[in-house]
């Protein structure tokens, strides 16, 4: 499963990559902001984009909408250090596969939300 991680915190990206790779997932790239995320998606064609809601240049929901408009859109899973309640109804209406609080991130939950075959190991 090809994954792109989008988060402006390099430390978190590094740990998330190790966590997902430990689960046998293929992290094809890391983006630090919205524009990088869009460019790298078009370039690397990931199946899943793990997308932080709070990005320095663009709103994560806006990035999700733009990703959904691509010719072969990836599945998007929103992550955030804020709770779902704090983000409100925009999560429900965004064109995404689901939402994960950052502390709940794991390969299994990601695979469940993205609707991909479960992690083999």
């Amino acid at each position: 499963m090809r994954i792109l991680i989008v988060d402006d915190h390099a430390g978190f990206r590094r740990v998330a990559r190790r966590l997902l790779e430990a689960c046998g997932m293929d992290v094809v790239g890391e983006a630090g902001n919205g524009r990088e995320a869009l460019a790298m998606t078009e370039q690397l064609c990931p199946q899943v984009v793990v997308l932080d809601v709070l990005l320095p240049d663009m709103d994560g929901f806006v990035v999700a909408h733009e990703l959904a408009g691509l010719p072969s859109p990836p599945r998007v899973v929103l992550i955030s250090s804020l709770t779902r309640a704090e983000l409100g109804t925009r999560v429900d209406t965004a064109p995404v596969a689901g939402f994960l609080a950052k502390e709940d991130l794991s390969g299994q939950r990601l695979a469940d939300l993205a609707g991909l075959p479960p992690w083999p190991g």
Partner: peptide, 22 residues
Amino acid sequence: LHDGAQQRMLSVGLILSLLRHS
């Protein structure tokens, strides 16, 4: 707080999770 301490604590959580698997 959100960008600093909170992100580091979240990362530590994920590291603990990795540690448990390893």
